[in-house]
């Protein structure tokens, strides 16, 4: 693979999981309370996909990484200032909703259209990366939809490892039940990979990478295409689970008694 890969990473933004999240119904449908004020981050699994993509591109000369992201432009700009310091990529922006309540199929179709429109993209060398689920919708559907729309039918989900074999084939480990991995080999690009955690730590912030990315980030934001998602589910309600348990606190009890209680409970 002397020509390298064209790696397109699909990565949305999600509210920082540490924030208090509360659903509210607005004129445009369901969303989160103060959604635009909640600090956003790159979707964690998509983040892993991006770091894996950058690492792969570094190791295979001639490769290039794009990050395709849909979200409100202003929010994306903020998140990109953090992400752009991590690894080199070229940004493609869709100015649209980043809400978990947006439909996966509509989102997938919009992203696929944006990917297909990337100038110079060679689909025979294309690897589409993303998180296997988002931390917002959590459907695990968008990547498959993108693949279908782009006509890529070699797809993998819950990927923790991707290895280039000597013959140019790709070895993939996917998470399956019971802590096991399914081990597969795909003959080469094009293919779709929904990443789980991967194997790489978060790269440190590198000011030079930031400078290099920024030349393309701001123009990409400026020419972001507005995207409106028309269809989606009809929600009859969104709620926070309210069950609060009455916790019996056992304090100052002898260890023997606690252990016996636990054993009795386990065998009950």
């Amino acid at each position: 693979m002397s020509a390298g890969y064209h790696i397109v990473v699909c990565g949305g933004i999600v509210p920082d999981p540490l924030q208090t999240l509360e659903p509210v119904q607005g004129p445009a449908g369901w969303g989160l309370k103060n959604e635009l004020m909640l600090p956003a981050i790159l979707d964690p699994w998509a983040g892993h996909a991006l770091f894996e993509a950058a690492n792969l591109a570094k190791n295979v000369p001639g490769s290039k990484v794009w990050l395709v992201s849909m979200g409100p432009k202003a929010k994306l700009q903020q998140v990109m200032m953090t992400i752009a310091q991590k690894v080199p990529f070229e940004l493609v922006v869709l100015d649209g909703p980043a809400s978990g309540f947006a439909d996966a199929h509509e989102t997938g179709a919009a992203l696929a259209e944006a990917i297909a429109a990337i100038p110079g993209l060679d689909t025979s060398r294309l690897l589409v990366f993303g998180g296997w689920q988002s931390a917002s919708r959590g459907a695990g559907a968008t990547m498959q939809v993108i693949g279908e729309k782009l006509g890529i039918f070699e797809q993998f989900q819950g990927v923790d490892k991707l290895e280039i074999l000597a013959d140019g084939a790709l070895r993939v480990l996917e998470r399956v039940e019971g802590g096991s991995y399914q081990d597969s080999v795909v003959s080469g690009a094009p293919a779709v990979f929904g990443w789980a955690t991967g194997e790489l730590p978060e790269p440190p912030n590198n000011p030079q990478v930031g400078m290099q990315n920024m030349r393309l980030v701001m123009p990409a934001l400026q020419k972001a295409k507005p995207v409106k998602l028309e269809k989606g589910p009809e929600y009859s309600g969104v709620q926070i689970p309210s069950q609060k348990r009455e916790t019996r606190v056992v304090k100052d009890a002898p260890v023997d008694q606690i252990a016996k209680e636990i054993v009795d409970w386990l065998s009950a």
Binding site: A74, Q77, M81, Q85
Partner: peptide, 15 residues
Amino acid sequence: SQVMGSGLAQIWPSM
């Protein structure tokens, strides 16, 4: 965001 939008200065957080 207006400063950033001008493209004439960059503000890098987490640094």
